[in-house]
Amino acid sequence: MSSLNTKKIRQNADLANAVSKCPFGEPVADCPFIPYYEMKNEREQVTQIEIIPQKKLEELREFHRACLRELMKTRKANFL
């Protein structure tokens, strides 16, 4: 079993929830996180942060932040 307490995962901890589930319940059609949601295993999903290249993580972060800004205008968030 791989550790979730790695330097890379800690540095990208803000993406842990984003790879685990959509805070709005249903992701947008072009959501790049959908392949991670399909894993249906939170530990496996978060472990992907260790595998994904940092450049890709930054792209995912950018997408997630932009999506949050837009969806917060129209949907009720479920952050818990």
Rank of each mutant, 00 (worst) to 15 (best):
S2W: 12
A66V: 04
K73T: 07
Y36N: 02
V28A: 10
M72S: 13
P23F: 04
C67S: 07
V28C: 14
P32F: 00
E62G: 01
L4N: 05
V19E: 02
E59W: 05
T47L: 12
P27N: 03
K40E: 05
E26M: 10
A29K: 14
N78D: 09
T6Q: 12
V28I: 13
F33V: 04
A16L: 12
F33N: 00
V19T: 00
R43I: 09
C31R: 07
R75S: 13
K40T: 08
R61M: 11
M39A: 08
D30S: 13
R69T: 12
L80M: 08
L15W: 04
D30F: 03
V46D: 01
K40C: 00
D30Y: 02
K21M: 09
I9H: 06
P27L: 02
K56C: 01
L57N: 03
N17R: 09
F63A: 06
E44P: 01
R10V: 10
N41L: 10
K40V: 06
A13M: 08
N78Y: 09
E26W: 04
N41P: 00
M72H: 13
P27E: 02
Y37S: 00
D14V: 10
P32A: 00
R69M: 10
R65K: 13
H64L: 09
Q45G: 00
I52A: 03
M39W: 01
Q48S: 13
D14H: 14
V19I: 14
K7N: 06
Q11T: 08
I34R: 08
F24A: 05
K76I: 12
H64R: 11
A29G: 10
K40W: 03
A29S: 14
G25H: 06
A16S: 15
P32E: 03
K55W: 04
V46K: 14
E44F: 03
K7Q: 11
I49V: 14
V28P: 03
T6C: 05
R61N: 07
T47F: 08
E62T: 13
I9P: 01
L60K: 01
M72L: 11
N17V: 06
E59T: 07
E42W: 06
Y37L: 01
I9M: 11
M72A: 07
E62I: 02
V19Q: 01
A16F: 01
E58W: 07
L68R: 11
I51K: 15
F63G: 03
R69H: 13
F79I: 12
I9W: 05
E26D: 11
R10N: 15
M1R: 14
M39V: 12
N5W: 12
Q11A: 14
T6N: 09
